[in-house]
Design a protein around this nucleic acid. Structure first.
Lengths: 124, 124
DNA sequence: CAGTATCCATTTTGATACTG
DNA sequence: CAGTATCAAAATGGATACTG
C-alpha cells in the first residue's frame, strides 16, 4: 500500500537507487523473471520453486502494476487477470541475464537461460 | 546474523534466485555500487546520498565479506578496515550497469556512469 | 481456480546514542 | 573516525482460512 513514488526518483538521482526502489527486495525480480519466462497467471507465478506466499505475490503484482511494469488484463468476466509485462519490464531482460550469469558464475554450476528469455515481446 | 548459506544455492537452482539471496534487499547493491565507484572506508559509504543507517551499513559490510564479495583489510593497528571488492563483486559491474541504464531509461532523465565504473580491478 | 484477508512470528529498518 | 548497541516501528514471511 505504501507509495513508492515511482513517477520520479525518490531517494536520489542515482538510477541504481531509483531502480532499487522498485526492484530492491527479495521477491520482485523473481516475479519479473517469471514474467519474462512467459508466465501470466497467478497460479503460474505461485508454483515457482521458490514458493512465494500468496499474499506477497498478490502484493507484488499490485505494486508492479502501479509501477508500470505489469499490465493486468481482465480475463473473462471474473476478477481474474493476465499479468502481462510492459515494455519497461521487458527492458529488464539484460539486467536479469547479467544477474543470472553472475549467480551462475559465483554460486552455481552450469546453467543456460531458457529459450524464452532470448526472444519475446511485451505484448502477447 | 542469520546464515545466508552463500556457499551454495539456498532457495533453488535458479541463478537469479541464488543471486538474490545475496543481493536481494534494499541496500546491498548500493553498497556494491559504491564499492565499484572506488569507495573503501566506512565513512565513504556512509556519506552516500541515500543515507544508509550505520547499523545497516555495518551489517551489510559484514555479510558481503562473509559472502566473498568484500575483502576487509585491516588499516593500521586499529579496528578499522579498507573494504575492497573481490573479483566476485567486480563481476557485478555489468549487472549494475544494466540496472542503472534501466533506472535511467524508465525513471530518470539523463545520466552516464562515472568514469570509475568503466575500468577498475579487484585489487587496489 | 484465482485471488483476498487475517493472524502472528520473524526480520529489517531507521533513529539515535554510545564506545574506543 | 569507525564502528557497535539499543529499541521501536514497519515490512516481510508463512500458514491458513475464506470468497466468488
Amino acid at each position: 500500500m505504501s507509495d513508492r513514488s515511482h513517477t520520479a526518483q525518490s531517494r536520489s538521482e542515482c538510477p541504481v537507487a531509483t531502480a532499487l526502489d522498485v526492484l530492491g527486495d527479495k521477491w520482485t525480480l523473481l516475479v519479473i523473471r517469471d514474467l519474462l519466462d512467459g508466465r501470466r497467471r497467478f497460479s503460474e507465478f505461485e508454483r515457482s520453486p521458490e514458493g512465494i506466499p500468496t499474499n506477497i505475490l498478490s502484493d507484488r503484482l499490485k505494486k508492479l502494476t502501479e509501477a508500470g511494469l505489469i499490465e493486468a488484463r481482465p480475463r473473462g468476466t471474473t476478477t481474474r487477470f493476465d499479468y502481462v509485462p510492459t515494455d519497461a519490464a521487458v527492458a529488464l531482460r539484460p539486467t536479469l541475464l547479467a544477474l543470472a550469469a553472475w549467480g551462475n558464475d559465483h554460486f552455481a554450476d552450469t546453467w543456460t537461460p531458457p529459450a524464452t528469455w532470448l526472444e519475446q515481446s511485451a505484448e502477447s
